[in-house]
Measured scan of single mutants.
Amino acid sequence: IDAAQIVDEALEQGITLFVVNNRLQYETSRDSIPTELLNKWKQHKQELIDFLNQLD
Rank of each mutant, 00 (worst) to 15 (best):
R30V: 06
L38M: 10
I6Y: 05
S32D: 09
D56W: 10
I15H: 04
R23Y: 10
Y26P: 02
D2A: 11
L48T: 01
K42A: 14
I33R: 01
V19Y: 04
A10N: 01
L48M: 03
S32A: 10
Q25H: 15
K40D: 03
L55H: 11
A4H: 12
S29N: 11
V19C: 05
K40I: 09
E9D: 06
I33Y: 03
Q43P: 03
L55Q: 12
R30T: 06
K42N: 13
T28I: 03
E9T: 03
K45M: 15
Q46Y: 08
I33A: 04
T35Y: 11
N21E: 09
P34N: 04
E27L: 14
A10F: 05
F18P: 01
D56T: 14
Q13H: 14
L38Y: 08
L38G: 03
E12Y: 08
F51E: 01
Q54C: 08
N21M: 07
I15T: 02
I15V: 10
Q43F: 09
A10S: 05
E47W: 05
I6E: 02
T35E: 13
Y26C: 08
D2L: 14
A10W: 02
N53A: 09
N39E: 14
N53P: 03
V7K: 02
A4D: 03
S29L: 11
I33H: 02
K45V: 13
Q46L: 08
L52Q: 00
W41E: 00
A4M: 09
T28M: 04
V7F: 09
Q46T: 09
T28R: 03
L55D: 07
Q5V: 08
T28W: 05
E27M: 14
R23W: 08
Q13P: 00
Y26A: 05
L52S: 00
Q25K: 11
N39H: 10
H44N: 07
I1W: 12
K42V: 10
D50S: 10
E9C: 05
L24T: 00
I1S: 10
D31A: 10
I6F: 05
L48W: 01
V20S: 09
I49L: 06
A4S: 10
V7P: 01
V7L: 07
I15M: 03
S32K: 09
N53Q: 11
S29T: 11
K45I: 13
H44V: 06
N39Q: 12
N21A: 07
E12M: 13
Y26T: 03
I1N: 08
S29Y: 09
E12Q: 14
K45E: 15
A4G: 09
K42C: 15
N22W: 05
R30F: 06
I6W: 06
G14C: 07
K45G: 09
Q54N: 12
A4L: 06
L11A: 13
L48S: 00
K45L: 15
I15D: 00
N22S: 06
S29G: 08
K42G: 07
I15N: 01
V7Q: 02
G14E: 04
K45A: 15
Q5I: 08
L11N: 08
A10I: 02
G14Y: 04
Q13D: 03
L24K: 00
D2H: 11
I49Y: 03
L37W: 06
D50I: 11
Q54Y: 10
D50W: 10
A3R: 02
A3N: 02
E36R: 08
K40A: 05
K42I: 14
N53Y: 08
R23I: 15
L24A: 00
Q54E: 10
V20Q: 11
Q43M: 12
I1V: 13
K42E: 13
D50E: 11
I1A: 09
K45Y: 15
K40G: 02
I1C: 11
S32F: 13
Q5L: 10
L38C: 08
E27H: 15
E36F: 09
N22G: 15
L11H: 08
D2S: 13
F18D: 03
P34T: 05
H44M: 07
L48D: 00
T35W: 11
A3Y: 09
Q54D: 09
P34E: 04
T16C: 15
E27F: 15
N39T: 11
F18H: 09
D56R: 10
L48V: 06
I1K: 07
K45S: 14
T28Y: 05
L17H: 00
Y26N: 01
I15E: 00
E36Q: 09
D8K: 15
Q54A: 14
E36K: 07
H44I: 05
I49A: 03
F51R: 02
I1G: 08
L37P: 00
E36D: 11
Q54L: 12
N22L: 05
Q25G: 10
R30E: 05
E47C: 08
D8R: 15
I6Q: 01
R23N: 14
D8M: 15
D56K: 10
I49V: 08
Y26S: 03
L11W: 10
Q13G: 05
L17V: 02
I33G: 01
Q43R: 12
I49D: 01
L38N: 03
L37A: 03
I6A: 03
H44F: 14
Q54K: 13
S29P: 06
Y26M: 06
D8L: 15
N21I: 03
Q25F: 15
T16H: 14
Q5G: 13
L38H: 04
P34C: 03
T35K: 12
E36W: 12
R23K: 13
I15R: 00
N53I: 13
Y26R: 01
E27T: 15
L17P: 00
V19P: 02
S29E: 13
E36T: 09
D50Y: 10
T28V: 04
Q54W: 11
L17D: 01
V19A: 06
N22Y: 06
I33D: 02
Q5F: 12
Y26H: 04
I15C: 04
A4N: 06
Q25S: 10
N39G: 07
G14P: 01
D31I: 09
I49T: 04
D8T: 14
Y26W: 15
E47P: 06
L24E: 00
T16L: 14
K40N: 04
L55S: 09
K42H: 12
D50V: 09
D2I: 14
F51P: 00
E36V: 09
N21V: 04
V7D: 00
D50T: 10
L48P: 00
D31H: 08
W41G: 00
F51K: 01
L48I: 15
E47M: 13
L38W: 07
R30P: 02
A3D: 01
T35D: 12
A3G: 04
G14Q: 05
V19L: 07
G14K: 04
R23E: 15
K42Y: 11
E9M: 05
Q5E: 08
V19N: 02
E47Q: 11
W41R: 00
Q46K: 11
L17T: 00
R23V: 15
D31Y: 05
G14N: 05
D50H: 10
S29W: 10
E9P: 00
E36G: 08
S29M: 10
L48R: 00
N39R: 12
Q46V: 07
I49P: 00
R23A: 14
H44Q: 03
A4R: 14
V20R: 12
N39V: 11
Q25L: 15
G14L: 04
T35Q: 14
N53M: 13
V20M: 10
I49W: 03
K40L: 13
F18A: 06
Q13K: 09
K45C: 14
K40Y: 07
I6G: 01
H44E: 01
N53S: 12
D31F: 07
T16V: 13
L24C: 04
D31L: 10
D31Q: 10
D8S: 15
T28N: 04
E27Y: 15
D2T: 15
Q43K: 13
Q5K: 12
E9Q: 06
I1L: 10
E9K: 03
F18R: 13
A10L: 04
L11Q: 11
E12C: 11
F51V: 02
D31R: 07
D8Q: 15
Q43H: 08
D8E: 14
K40T: 07
